[in-house]
Design a binder for these strands. Structure first.
Lengths: 384, 384
DNA sequence: GCTAGTAATGAAGGGCTCCTTCGTAAGTCG
DNA sequence: CGACTTACGAAGGAGCCCTTCATTACTAGC
């Protein structure tokens, strides 16, 4: 909108450098000629650009590939290992962390069990243990971290304060970003976990390439993450996707159908009840099938609202219950087809429990990209 | 996403030319120095750019402003009159047209009454009459038209076919874009009317500057238009905003509360019943107030769904009933405050009946901007 | 009416980035 | 070992932007 700045020669070079980086990130090691062709620049210009990028530490040479006709071309690659990113999923019962290079390639993962009732210090300590574990596994130090991206339940405002969190008492009114900045001397990003899961499916899961996606985070809690125009939609107060708060959408009490089914054996711990019902339904238990039917009836109302409002290209069923997508997908499809004007593609998540951590990594990668490609960001920094 | 093209010197010039055009469009006539300062270019470079733009017909010189110290500076302005845009609102009972210059400044408006049951040819003839009227009023010819943008009820697919239209029988399965291209020898754009109304409020109405807006098109029909990230959100099949199709959202039958109120005098034509109820409510009639209460109760459900899903910055109440915003706004606000996590700003539309035509103009302007500022669009064309 | 002051103009010279072209280098294939 | 293929590197040229400076046109004050 307010982009009224004209361009300089140096701006042009910057643009071309970034284009080269982008091409290298997307397509792995490339020769000078390949790079030149992709970017539309001439070889000599490309040569100069890569020389500069090598000097700054963004690009390095790799051994030429042999076996080709003619003189072997030098190959260059983006130095994804010149920095590291960490993704963290702070859930009710588990804290997961993953470490990746600057391309989002995951190098290490850890998990720390916690309890929803743990006091704040214990949770933060568990976060630190999880991250330290990742660093140790890949022989990295905290100084190499460029960004820590955190996903957690609840509504988190743009400054990283937890505005609302039903499931984790210690989280209320917490300046989570501030607490984490104490632990990690680098950029800290916080985002809602459903949105990160949506991001993961969009960047490397079943929703790859889709422009508008509704991600259903179904499990013991219900949530939704939206991708609009290829980007995560946060909303003005970072509270998008909270359709669960609307009674008429029938999401809030939906899981109860699964929890209270008569097919659940007595003595089953409450957190396993829904899973038991879903298993029974898979085996054809009539009571369980009926409970699933009622559950899907409710799930479909809020989902249809999102589909009718947004007309997305795809709906992705994710979260804990997506393990039972085989039981849920078809009934949900049938119900949605009745309500929706244009039926979007309906798919089950494939990323499983790591969805949120991976999404946090992807969020960090995306943030890095944004920073790099923001116009007038000044010259490229030197890495190490 | 797929922007992997590097930049040429000529690309730089193109970018700077476009930046100059943009600056001139935004801030009216400017001197060379002012332009240079705004764009960050040096004066000599700016001089060359404007010389080129004048040669191409995009910019012209205006008399210098006198009374300043020093040598009077030449002033340049964007030639908004080197082409014209037309916006059309094809409604059930009225066809409105407006003609504007390339800046969206409206030069003429006309209206043609029609009936919902008119056959297709009559409607198209009325469209042509409406547009011809505008052209005559401003002494323009159809050859000067760059774009005709049309708003109409129903779901229109990306190619300009009417996919679905409940209110106008002749509209079903019609290749509207094709029909209109027969009438007008220029670019023809078709869009849903609620979305255009949303666009108008966003570009020149109460929602100016807001990033995410939910526009409620309330009247005898119900509809919604979404602005997300400052842009109109169409959806994958151009069917966004159709929450009215979901029974649980309670929009579909909501207007009936106003139509069937006992306060409506006998003999009132059905299309005036709702207006009568709203007037009665304004005067304190208890039955009417109760009907309004029930109407708002229903309206609030679908609205809350949109607010909870999108968390917009603002909700704008528009459409025919927004004339009675004084009666509707406060009850709606109270109901929404109960349902929404974060209450968005709630405002009434100010553009009135011209909302859709004006939105169509703005859509055409936006389209022109997009075309101009698409990278790799080639060199600027000559105008005239 | 004249002079001083102010601000825009126009032309000259320089630097940077990109392009094309051409001879040279380093491999594979027969 | 020679022919062929492909990449490399250097040289020369064009385009675009910048800075600098003398010139021009107008206002303000005496």
């Amino acid at each position: 909108m307010a982009d009224l700045r004209g361009g300089d020669l140096s701006r042009l070079r910057q643009l071309n450098s970034l284009t080269a980086i982008r091409a290298l990130r997307r397509a792995g090691p490339l020769t000078l000629s390949a790079l030149a062709e992709r970017t539309g620049l001439s070889r000599p210009s490309m040569k100069e650009v890569t020389a500069e990028l090598m000097e700054l530490g963004w690009v390095e040479e790799v051994p030429p590939s042999s076996g080709t006709m003619g003189r072997p071309a030098r190959r260059y690659r983006f130095r994804a290992d010149s920095g590291h990113l960490v993704g963290v999923d702070i859930g009710g019962h588990n804290i997961r962390a993953a470490l990746s290079d600057l391309d989002g390639e995951i190098l290490a993962e850890t998990r720390q069990p916690v309890s929803p009732d743990d006091p704040l210090e214990d949770r933060l300590a568990a976060v630190e243990r999880a991250v330290s574990g990742c660093l140790a596994l890949s022989r990295t130090t905290v100084e190499d971290l460029w960004t820590v991206a955190v996903g957690t339940i609840g509504v988190i405002d743009p400054e990283g304060r937890v505005v609302y969190s039903a499931a984790v008492p210690a989280w209320r009114d917490l300046d989570l970003a501030g607490e984490l900045r104490e632990l990690f001397p680098c950029q800290v990003l916080i985002e809602n976990d459903s949105r990160l899961a949506a991001m993961a499916e969009h960047r490397r899961g079943v929703a790859k390439g889709a422009r508008d996606v509704v991600f259903l985070h179904v499990g013991r809690r219900m949530g939704a993450g939206l991708i609009i125009g290829g980007k995560v939609h946060r909303g003005f107060g970072a509270a998008s996707g909270e359709i669960v708060m609307l009674p008429e959408a029938r999401w809030f009490h939906a899981p109860e159908h699964l929890n209270t089914c008569v097919s659940v054996p007595e003595g089953t711990p409450p957190e396993d009840a829904a899973g038991s019902t879903l298993s029974a339904a898979r085996n054809g238990d009539p009571a369980a099938l009926e409970a699933v039917e009622r559950y899907v009836d409710d799930l479909a109302v809020g989902t249809a609202a999102m589909v009718l409002i947004l007309d997305p290209e795809m709906v992705v069923l994710g979260g804990g219950f997506s393990r039972s997508a085989d039981v849920l997908l078809e009934p949900l499809r049938r119900r949605l087809e009745r309500s929706c004007m244009r039926m979007p593609e309906l798919r089950a998540s494939t990323l499983g429990d790591e969805c949120v951590v991976v999404g946090a990594i992807d969020y960090a990668v995306g943030h890095l990209d944004d920073q790099l490609f923001t116009p007038d960001r000044g010259p490229l920094p030197v890495t190490r």
